[in-house]
Write a protein that binds this DNA or RNA. Structure first.
Lengths: 340, 340
DNA sequence: AAGTTTTTGAGGTACGCACCTCAAAAAGAG
DNA sequence: CTCTTTTTGAGGTGCGTACCTCAAAAACTT
């Protein structure tokens, strides 16, 4: 039988109340006693029964997913998955809610964050660009006792904060390698498209892409990143200009998660010769393009896994546990028509 | 506040005892009453609190993973992941154990299965070839009240039993498409290797592979499947013969999960011209080969996901719940050096 | 040493459900 | 209508932990 708090109390030679104080980090316990209890935990191999703990807490766990207000197709997919998860996990006493923030105004975003109270949220997973305001807001949030985890968009390297999502440098490198291999022996220019190069994610993807292309495939010329600013008109404009300026375009790498317009457009502009097109994130339209062969490959991060992983991470933080890093690494998925 | 059993009792106009009887499928309740309770469940939106239920059950859940005794590298990976999972989920009152069966002797295997008691296992996930004996043993097991789920190796189509794993036809097609795209404009013969073509998994993979190759890439000649019987000697023999008989080999597709020997061997036999090699399942050695560029792509099913999914499925069956199919579909992963 | 503060213990209640017993009520049989 | 069988209700206990209160003990202060 696994030891319970009662057994632990006996083993440590203290009372249940003290065990409770130590286990839940309450004050008023001498360091000496804390050490004795921890020693007993080690010795007996005590593990808190999370099932009973969750039940006793009354309120299960309430997690918030902080997402940008303005969104692309991928965001819709994420939101759908969050609500699905919410449904499925209610029986486990885990409630998830989506909170939208103004992604173009860091001050307003930070203000929204500052209004999130520990009375309503045990933790939040945030997808937002890294700005000083948001960084500060997150810091204060943690001080308020709300756990935080960055997801999809990384916040910073410093490791002070956990992150759930893919390694974007590796994702870019993956795209680069696939592009080169699919192109085979041909040579020419490759277009790279992003919503904006302000975002760290795009920068990292580009970095990874170039690392592979420039070092190993000199026959290709990866052109400077074109910025679409997320609008259809501008996408049209920059793509038309690029095709006019370069006659030898053989590939298109769409780094942003809104690929719809670009795929359709490139299809028309490229003429007879088909170009290899690679995009990110599985959405209804990229999926359709993949099936229609207007897209050759998709680099994807599974929304379901990301969400579950974010919740597991937040929960572990709430319970002061470690997570198995191996279980939480989000895979960089390569999708083609056959493995959708 | 979510309704509890108490609320449900009031809503249905029955006592807690009756609610308990209905919820846990005990006998001695008139159909009329059962219907009334179910109607009240619908009406109030009652959902059993699994946290409390698990706690009250005393014994958490005990699941067995039935694996073949003779194993390859992939099996080792699976086992490692199961024990990792076991560690991590003890706090959730879920215990997992590995049970080995004799995969070459269906009768002994069935006998081992018949000895598994409902007193020791709430459910089992089985990875085994489909034979009448095993099918029967599984049937009887379910009668004994043990939930079952097939994993990795499918048992049958009939849908009477749940399956956690990849669609092997699609996996084969994925391999085929990648093979063709990586080969580009070259032409020639492609070797296909399997442990045995007796297994349904290999058959399905071959089927998918051929579907893509024969229909869309007539320039390639996918040779008949070579069987290695899982031994290094035979692998050496069939490969040497094949390379001797065909001078135009450009690709190698290894369908089994023991790729080590074949990769090394093909590397030596193919001479100057590099051949495109694709294998299944991530293991230390396929991972190494991928990094060393002696392997071009890997088709993988994530062991961690499979195991978690199998457990979620078994648990849902124990609790008489549905699972979200979308959450449980195992992805056919494409791995290259960049997205390992 | 007396007083003050800090630390600890003993005991309780609650969470939502499973599982048990026994008696009472309802339904069916003759 | 009585007798038997089936169905239902009332009540209890326990799972392992969180969280609370109050008093007692121990540790410092002056």
């Amino acid at each position: 039988m696994r030891p319970t708090t009662k057994d632990l109390a006996k083993a440590a030679g203290v009372s249940l109340a003290t065990i409770d104080r130590v286990l839940n980090g309450r004050s008023g316990v001498r360091q000496k006693t804390v050490d004795a209890v921890n020693e007993a935990i080690e010795r007996t191999g005590f593990q808190r029964n999370q099932v009973a703990a969750t039940l006793a807490r009354q309120k299960g766990y309430r997690f918030g997913f902080v997402l940008p207000r303005s969104g692309d197709e991928f965001l819709d997919v994420i939101i759908k998955h969050i609500s699905e998860f919410d449904q499925a996990s209610r029986a486990e006493m885990i409630a998830t809610k989506v909170v939208r923030i103004d992604d173009h105004d860091p001050h307003r975003a930070a203000k929204t964050l500052s209004r999130l109270s520990a009375d309503d949220y045990d933790g939040i997973a945030i997808m937002a660009p890294e700005t000083p305001q948001i960084r500060d807001a997150l810091y204060r949030m943690r001080e308020r006792g709300i756990q935080t985890v960055a997801f999809i968009s990384n916040q910073q390297e410093e490791g002070s904060q956990s992150f759930v999502g893919i390694d974007n440098i590796a994702a870019g490198a993956t795209a680069g390698r696939l592009m080169a291999r699919f192109l085979g022996h041909t040579a020419g220019s490759i277009l790279v498209l992003a919503e904006t190069m302000q975002s760290r994610d795009s920068l990292e993807r580009r970095l990874g892409f170039d690392k592979v292309m420039s070092r190993e495939y000199p026959q290709f010329d990866a052109l400077p990143t074109l910025e679409t600013h997320g609008t259809a008109e501008r996408t049209r404009l920059v793509l038309a200009n690029a095709f006019a300026a370069h006659q030898d375009i053989v590939g298109l790498y769409i780094m942003g998660s809104e690929a719809r317009v670009a795929i359709d457009l490139a299809q028309n502009l490229c003429g007879e010769e088909k170009i290899i097109t690679i995009a990110h994130e599985r959405t209804p339209s990229t999926e359709h393009a993949l099936r229609a062969k207007t897209l050759d490959a998709l680099i994807n991060q599974d929304p379901g896994h990301i969400i579950r992983s974010a919740v597991r991470t937040l929960r572990a933080q709430c319970e002061n546990r470690e997570t198995l890093a191996s279980q939480e690494r989000i895979r960089i998925e390569i999708l083609i028509a056959e493995n959708l």
